[in-house]
Design a protein around this nucleic acid. Sequence first.
DNA 1: CCAAAAGTGTTGGCATTACACCCATGC
DNA 2: GCATGGGTGTAATGCCAACACTTTTGG
Lengths: 248, 248
Amino acid sequence: MIEQLRGRDHAQAAVTVDLLIYTVRDDELHVLLIERGHAPFEGRPALPGGYVRTGEHLDTAALRELQEETGIDGSRLHLEQLRTYGDPDRDPRGRVITVAYLALGPDMPLAEAGTDARTAAWVPVRKILDGHIDLAFDHGVILREGLERARFQLEYTTVAAAFCTEPFTLAELRRVYEAVWGLQLDASNFRRKVTGAHGFLLPTGEHRTQEIGRPAALYRRGPAQLLSPPLLRSSDAGDPQPSLLALH
Amino acid sequence: MIEQLRGRDHAQAAVTVDLLIYTVRDDELHVLLIERGHAPFEGRPALPGGYVRTGEHLDTAALRELQEETGIDGSRLHLEQLRTYGDPDRDPRGRVITVAYLALGPDMPLAEAGTDARTAAWVPVRKILDGHIDLAFDHGVILREGLERARFQLEYTTVAAAFCTEPFTLAELRRVYEAVWGLQLDASNFRRKVTGAHGFLLPTGEHRTQEIGRPAALYRRGPAQLLSPPLLRSSDAGDPQPSLLALH
DNA sequence: CCAAAAGTGTTGGCATTACACCCATGC
DNA sequence: GCATGGGTGTAATGCCAACACTTTTGG
């Protein structure tokens, strides 16, 4: 801030917010992508997002873009700032700095194409990680870093419940963990840990009969935000990129 | 990004980086503050930082400001992005968005006052938390959120070693944990956990005899970035603000 | 000069708890 | 077939005590 009287070589930049919205559909992790309608990267898939307006808070802009581009009400999902990307060459239009947000939510129907929202669609994350889909800008990097953050947060916080529509069963919650982490969990141990974590789950006392098997007990989210003790993925296999966790 | 042809009501903002630099001195957590030399907030303590230049990467700007304002060589410390603060009213000069960086490093001598650096000084974090010192802008918020992040990261990563000058003793490392967490640890359990964590510490085989007591074995950092298993603070006392952890 | 005390690092021993793996039962 | 619950052996942890190495104190 002190350079203001010095060189005055400070950048004026446009500021955008980009939204990385994850959900679990059919036991698989999905991300919400839109198809870009204009240059640059016209026709390419990208994360929803847009310019921050004059005098607008960053968080407000994120919620607004969420509503405008996908029709989703932000109050239903977990939203937090992920990281800011400011590579001077990341946008061919000039200096554009983007604040990326990570959103986790239950599987939701999208506003039908043809309304205000451009073609927004849930896309399996696997397809992008496998390289079958190439995202615009540096959105591929954002997606990977956000995924690492989400995997990490599932261990130490109660955000996993944000993926479920209340009330939910323990099996539904377990499938969230399995989808995000990409591994299978022992149902018995999962139950003991998750029900033992203080303030994580509130039993409703009711049960839901599914197509097959014993009826499952129903739960709602508890007040706890941090998971203690944490719910560790047993095998720290495939050592995560160190730079991506930020713990953030 | 798609709004570019719409309202064009998108903000042009100046972009700054601010540096939250923590270290452990005399078994107490300190932060590096400067005294502002100009309006606004002239004379008030603040985090070091400054404008990002045209065409400059955010990380580069952080390292440059670190060097310019404090004389510290960034290669010696752990540096990572913390969060971006974009409240439209956070700077009276106009729309200024700041990308805050969290830096952790060993106790280092500061460039003497009188050189290029303005009065930069290590300040006990306790004094700020107690409200005895009021920081400029929203730097008080940044400090608190960064502290929460640092406390969290000590549990799950090996960054604690960034506070120590190599080679270091287990007692020095333990005092880092105690200073950041503000509680006392059992030396025996600490040793067991920290030496058992794969890739955290590399024994040098040498010992250092201090002024008093038995000579302590010396260690260097190992290659591990993540701590498995994590080193949990036994009591999750004083439940941390949920929004601050980010795991970040 | 030697002996005792004090301070710090290091090692070890339980008792308790958490956990992974497996099996039994209810619907 | 799936959810639920219990049981058992292994590993991790918290607490506590003993030991090792050094300097300081004081006769």
